[in-house]
């Protein structure tokens, strides 16, 4: 059994490596990284009033991320499957001796790793806050973990919409809409509006589907099991849906 497992990981690694390298052989990766870092900087220091807050934390850094990722993560994920379908390489990929789930996981992990690289490159904010004050680095670490999971959830959704169409723009827009819904379900102005006419239990149930609700804990430094489970199940569900969609296309 270990033999089978190691060959199956090898196939996933091979696909992931190819995918990750392909990000960096096109200018897309560098454009994305520059824009991501510029926007992160702008939101943290200008819009987030990092200095005016007068506290040694990265709250102003994390609080914007659901919105920032809303646009940027689907841009990373939109090409995953639509490009393979458009160029016909899907036929090549799926006739290699790999299972569909291995191909999906390999491609997802590659783009997630790419987002992790982007996140790692935000390290100057950690240095800044540590030079200027004495922050709780445990809270920051939890925030980063939450941020990575948040990006993974958006990415899995973009992966799913990308499998639906061979048009990257359509995949992008669908992913943004779905992710926006996942934000708004727990966005304070929206939940406030809901409480006026719905029961608190209903509002809570809706908010339970939101990334905002589950990202909140991480920002405060709390790594709760239910938040972890939430993000991992969004990822798991979206990737499973991807496999169903891909199988559906082939069944004709």
């Amino acid at each position: 059994m270990t033999g089978a497992r190691s060959t199956s990981w090898k196939a996933i690694r091979t696909i992931a490596r190819r995918e990750l390298v392909s990000y960096f052989t096109s200018p897309v990766a560098y454009v994305f990284l520059v824009i991501f870092l510029l926007l992160t900087g702008f939101f943290t220091f200008t819009a987030g009033a990092f200095f005016e807050r007068g506290e040694a934390s990265l709250a102003s850094f994390f609080v914007w991320q659901p919105w920032l990722y809303l646009v940027l993560v689907p841009a990373v994920g939109m090409r995953l499957w639509s490009e393979e379908r458009r160029s016909g390489t899907l036929e090549l990929l799926l006739t290699f001796p790999v299972a569909t789930w291995q191909a999906i996981l390999g491609k997802f992990l590659a783009s997630w790793a790419f987002l992790a690289i982007a996140l790692v490159l935000t390290f100057p904010v950690i240095l800044t806050v540590n030079v200027l004050g004495d922050p709780d680095n445990g809270v920051i670490a939890a925030g980063y973990l939450g941020s990575l999971l948040l990006a993974g959830a958006y990415l899995a959704i973009a992966c799913m919409t990308s499998a639906m169409t061979r048009n990257q723009v359509v995949a992008f827009i669908l992913a943004v809409v779905i992710c926006l819904f996942l934000i708004l379900a727990g966005f304070n102005p929206v939940t406030d509006l809901l409480t006026r006419w719905a029961s608190p239990a209903f509002v809570d149930a809706v908010a339970g589907f939101s990334v905002m609700t589950h990202f909140d804990g991480f920002q405060k430094g709390v790594i709760a099991l239910r938040d972890l489970v939430f993000f991992l199940s969004v990822i798991g569900f979206a990737l499973f849906a991807t496999s169903v969609i891909i199988r559906g296309h082939r069944a004709g």
């Binding site: 190819r18 392909s22 052989t25 096109s26 160029s87 016909g88 390489t89 036929e91 090549l92 006739t95």
Partner: peptide, 13 residues
Amino acid sequence: GYLPEAAPSYPDM
């Protein structure tokens, strides 16, 4: 070994 119609490959490689 399979050569699909239109011989697809990854153009960035």
